[in-house]
């Protein structure tokens, strides 16, 4: 089945690796994949969006509005920013930890993401909020947030990718010394 995944967050959060893992699982099933992402200026603390389209006869590399099966939000505000891509009945998996933009700090903003999470909970049927700050703490690294979110996505049943496929794709992309921590992160993410 053709699937559209949208991953969004802030530069440096590891959206690109997560997108690659989703793509690798589809390729392993013999499907075609198109992906694209914003790179360049966006790396420097700006918003980052990765689009992953899997299946057959895929044309546009960017997901058309209203057609994303799943949005994986690495930051609650960024998930809300990209909501217009979500299809009816689509699933949002979102980290509750906010990242305050510099411009917000300069203007004494009280932004902490809670308002975004509330909004998602109230208005989108299928929302999974993940306390990545807590789970990253258990794993001992902030860098595994992407893997935790992938785990949550798998257990939601909304993504066409299994635990085994994810694990294979993930471990082939990571140094052996990071394997243990990432498997732990994946499993914690699945438990929620």
């Amino acid at each position: 089945m053709n699937m559209n995944y949208l991953l969004c967050g802030v530069g440096g959060q590891g959206t690109v690796l997560a997108a690659k893992v989703l793509a690798a699982a589809a390729i392993a099933r013999g499907e075609d994949v198109k992906t694209t992402e914003t790179i360049g200026m966006a790396q420097r603390g700006g918003s980052v969006t990765s689009y992953v389209r899997t299946g057959f006869n895929i044309h546009s590399p960017i997901i058309p509005l209203g057609t994303a099966d799943v949005i994986i939000g690495f930051e609650p505000g960024e998930a809300v920013r990209n909501l217009s891509y979500l299809k009816e009945g689509g699933t949002v998996i979102v980290s509750s930890k906010s990242v305050m933009p510099v411009t917000a700090a300069l203007t004494d903003s009280t932004y902490n993401g809670d308002e975004m999470v509330d909004y998602l909970r109230k208005n989108i049927k299928n929302v999974i909020v993940v306390d990545t700050e807590k789970l990253c703490g258990i794993c001992g690294s902030d860098k595994v947030m992407n893997v935790i979110l992938l785990g949550a996505a798998i257990s939601s049943g909304a993504v066409e990718i299994s635990y085994e496929e994810t694990k294979t794709a993930l471990l082939s992309r990571l140094k052996p010394k990071l394997h243990e921590m990432n498997i732990k992160a994946l499993e914690l993410g699945m438990k929620g």
Partner: peptide
Amino acid sequence: AKMPEIPSRPPVL
């Protein structure tokens, strides 16, 4: 339902 205001996130050093 009114969407909350999302802070802009321009690239920075």
